[in-house]
Amino acid sequence: MEWFGLYNYWIVVVLMMVGFYIVIAQGNLIKKIVGLNIFQTSVFIFFISLAKLEGGTAPIHVAGVSDYSNPLPHVLILTAIVVGVALTAVGLALVVRIHELYGTIEEDEIHAQDEA
């Protein structure tokens, strides 16, 4: 069971790299935003994994229980989720605007039109 202790972090790294790959290698703008989302959620899982306390429970006070998971990363990630959605909305608005102007959401076609 010893190696399970770092399993969460390894999957977080895998998810993060999948998101990173989508952002740098795929030309479709909507897909890039999906990639950013995958990256972002992996960071959330990282923080929540840090907050987990073995034998603890959810940070809601119950008489007779003294071990709770760390509430501070939870608050941080609550804020981050909402801010993340706000930023996604702005990104998608830019995609809609780019589609209005160029008629495409493929990165290389946009570059080709800019150079022409």
């Binding site: 989302n37 959620t41 959330f44 899982i45 929540i48 994994s49 907050a51 987990k52 306390l53 603890g56 429970t57 959810a58 940070p59 809601i60 709770y68 998971s69 939870h74 990630i77 609550l78 989720i81 909402v82 993340g84 959605v85």
Partner: peptide, 18 residues
């Protein structure tokens, strides 16, 4: 996963918003 990791508030927000 957030429910499993004891972060119930985060799980609710992620399910509703994410």
């Amino acid at each position: 996963l957030f429910v499993m990791l004891d972060a119930v508030d985060v799980a609710l927000t992620e399910a509703a918003v994410g």
